[in-house]
Computed example of a mutant assay.
Amino acid sequence: MATEANGAETGGLVFHPMDQFIVRPLFGDGPVGMFTLTNATLWLALTVLAVIAIMVLGTSRRAIIPSRSQSVGELAYGFVYKMVEDVTGKDGVKYFPYIMSLFMFVVLANFLGLIPMSFATTSHFAVTVVLALAVFLAVTILGFVNNGVSFLGMFWVTSAPLALRPVLAIIELISYFVRPVSHSIRLAGNIMAGHAVIKVFAGFAALAVVSPISILAITAMYGLEVLVAFIQAYVFTILTCVYLKDALSPHH
């Protein structure tokens, strides 16, 4: 939020766009410990409740003429199911519940973070890294369970000249272990950047001269962030499907 500067700073505006990402205790002003209830804890819990409300309560009374919540649940179900089937094939459909849960959590966390005075949980690497590592470990374990040692064959590029295969194997191995890094940074970075830009524009709204322009910029940026919230959830989910496909068919 922009505040009027005083004292050493004369008549300017001070912006603190990153303050919105600070994890604070819900009660009191003490340090944040392992079991401290924080603003991040609250909005993570609200995200889980939102998923339950849409996918469980919203579809509990299914009807031929669907309610709004049932329509949203069915659209999300069909969208993710087709994604899983198209990318991983029939073999990957059995893992649809996990991927569906992942998509709903990420997309609703992104949307809830756009509510004024809320907290964008997916802007924190502590959240996105855990999600990405869960995908990475699950896919790696699944790859060895389904394929055994032959799963390592995905790092050996048989179509390349023999002299280049060891070099390509090292590159493939590094790129494989970089997956959770890129998977998590992409989501957190985009959410954090968008919210920070909106906060900067909101700070300029305090200046009467540029206030109308600032409000227009905030409106346009907010609309873009709504789109980004969905796109980033889609990208996170489809990358999960791609990684799952590698585990199911490492030699494909």
Rank of each mutant, 00 (worst) to 15 (best):
G189C: 07
A206R: 04
V200Y: 14
V197N: 13
A193Q: 13
A188F: 15
A193G: 09
V200F: 14
F204E: 14
V226S: 10
S214P: 00
N190K: 02
A202Y: 10
I191T: 00
A208H: 07
G203M: 08
L187W: 12
Y222R: 06
A220F: 09
S211Y: 05
A188M: 15
I218L: 05
I198A: 12
S214E: 11
G223L: 07
F201E: 15
P212G: 11
R186W: 04
I191R: 01
H183F: 05
I218N: 01
H183I: 00
L224I: 05
A202D: 14
S184W: 13
A208F: 08
G223V: 01
P212T: 06
A193D: 12
N190Q: 09
A202W: 09
I218H: 02
V228M: 03
M192L: 07
A208L: 08
L187M: 14
A208R: 07
S184H: 14
T219G: 06
V200E: 15
G189R: 04
V226Q: 12
L187Y: 14
I215A: 09
I218R: 01
T219D: 10
N190L: 11
I215C: 02
V226A: 14
L216A: 06
I198Y: 09
A229S: 12
E225N: 14
S211C: 07
M192Q: 04
H183C: 01
G189Q: 06
N190T: 02
I218Q: 04
A206W: 03
A229Y: 08
A217L: 11
N190F: 08
I213L: 15
A188W: 14
A193V: 09
A188C: 14
V226F: 12
H195A: 11
K199D: 15
S184Y: 14
A220I: 08
I185Q: 11
G203V: 03
Y222E: 13
I185V: 11
A202I: 05
I191L: 03
I218P: 00
L187D: 12
M221R: 01
V226K: 08
L216Y: 03
T219C: 06
M192K: 04
I185W: 12
A193Y: 13
A206M: 05
S214L: 08
K199F: 12
M192C: 00
V210A: 03
L207A: 09
A208W: 06
E225A: 11
H195K: 12
K199A: 15
F201P: 00
A229C: 06
T219E: 11
I191F: 01
I191V: 05
P212F: 11
H195I: 04
A196K: 06
A220E: 09
G223P: 00
V228I: 04
L207D: 13
M221Y: 03
A206H: 05
G189W: 09
G194Q: 14
I191N: 00
L224M: 11
T219Q: 09
A188N: 15
L187R: 12
L227Y: 15
R186Y: 06
S211V: 02
H183A: 02
V228N: 02
F204H: 13
L207K: 07
A206F: 03
I198H: 06
L207Y: 10
L227V: 13
L216Q: 02
H195W: 05
A205Y: 04
G194T: 12
A205P: 00
G194I: 12
A196F: 10
A193H: 09
I185L: 10
N190M: 08
A217Y: 03
I185N: 07
A229D: 03
N190R: 04
A208I: 07
A196W: 08
M221C: 05
